[in-house]
Amino acid sequence: MTNLSLADLAGYLRQLGEGALITLELFFASFTLAFVLGVLIGVVTLSRNRFIRAAWRVYASVFMGVPSLLVIFLIFYGGSAMLAAVLGEFGARIDISPFGAGVAALGIVYAAYIAELVRGAIENLPKGQFEGARALAIPPLIMWGRVILPQVMRLALPGLVNVWSFMLKETPLVSLAGLQDLVAAAKIAAGATKEPFLFFVATALLFIAFSAASLWLANRLEARLDRGQRRAPVRSSAQAEA
């Protein structure tokens, strides 16, 4: 059945490699956007302001309640019009690429999940952390940056790992908006060679391998953070003696 020449195979492999790079770029860009947005939104929406809280609830409910694919299409089709409405004449001239639409859509959707994790983690922090920082008259920006957020990240890490691997599995959706990513390359190769089984299984295994590797890294990171946590009391008592 197999009638693939070695040269053909090399060609398809190169395409797959290029696609994989695009998938990775898309994934890292979207995750970074989601992370930054998510942390910001998570911190800001803890405010007591009723309007901000209501806005958070609407945002979370909408983007957790619709498919990511729909958000991708919405931004891909309607992004230019939205930009035009916001930026006026200048915005209308910006064309939305599939890559840009994918990053924006996945970033906005997963920012909601990350914001929820961050909110939960902050609410689980002991109140003493805030009071201690305030008692020491630490400026708010440094308090958040040096005291609160590092602890929040440790608490939120298992959840972040979930978002990470789930988001990875949704990156192929952007190929439906025309992005020439790994999955699109696999589809082309599968069609041209009449070997769909081979190419799709290989693509799936690539995703699984990447996911497994990042899980392994995350577990090591988690173990390290926990070790720091265990050692902390010993160190502080030593400091107290000094």
């Binding site: 999955v183 696999a186 589809k187 799709f200 693509t203």
Partner: peptide, 23 residues
């Protein structure tokens, strides 16, 4: 579990739709 949970749904769908017809 590792395969069907780890593979993106879109690829699973392609695999079943295009891949199984090959058999």
């Amino acid at each position: 579990v590792v395969f069907f949970r780890g593979a993106p749904l879109l690829i699973l769908l392609y695999l079943v739709y295009y891949g199984l017809g090959q058999i």
